[in-house]
């Protein structure tokens, strides 16, 4: 149990160095998240559409969009006319 308001993370910081790739990964995620949410704010999109918009491979787009779905930023909309790709939209409270 942490004592009072003293943050135990500070103690950890003294003995544990955060690797650079973890920091880079975080930066990349924050950037991607912003880009996806910005794009979806305009209109609902499918993974291939987002891929084009963001200039990012479709598999990466799927991975991040699904992560954002899990975290509650994105919601699933209808499937496209070909019954192939779902549209994703920004979640109202997201």
């Amino acid at each position: 149990m942490s004592e009072g308001n003293k943050k135990t993370v500070l103690i950890m910081k003294e003995k544990h160095q955060v690797p650079q790739d973890v920091k880079d990964e975080l930066k990349f995620f924050v950037k991607t998240k912003k880009a996806i949410l910005k794009a979806l704010k305009e209109k609902r999109m499918t993974v291939p559409e987002l891929s084009e918009e963001l200039n990012m491979p479709k598999d990466k787009v799927l991975y991040f969009t699904m992560s954002l779905l899990k975290y509650g930023f994105v919601a699933v909309d209808e499937i496209d006319d070909m019954d192939e790709y779902f549209y994703y939209k920004i979640k109202d409270n997201g």
Binding site: S2, K7, T8, V9, I11, M12, K13, H16, V18, V22
Partner: peptide, 23 residues
Amino acid sequence: DIENCTLCGACERACPTHCIDFT
């Protein structure tokens, strides 16, 4: 997951029961 943690401390601040303990 300490290997991927950036030690930002956000979790510790957010936890209502103060159960996060990096020590």
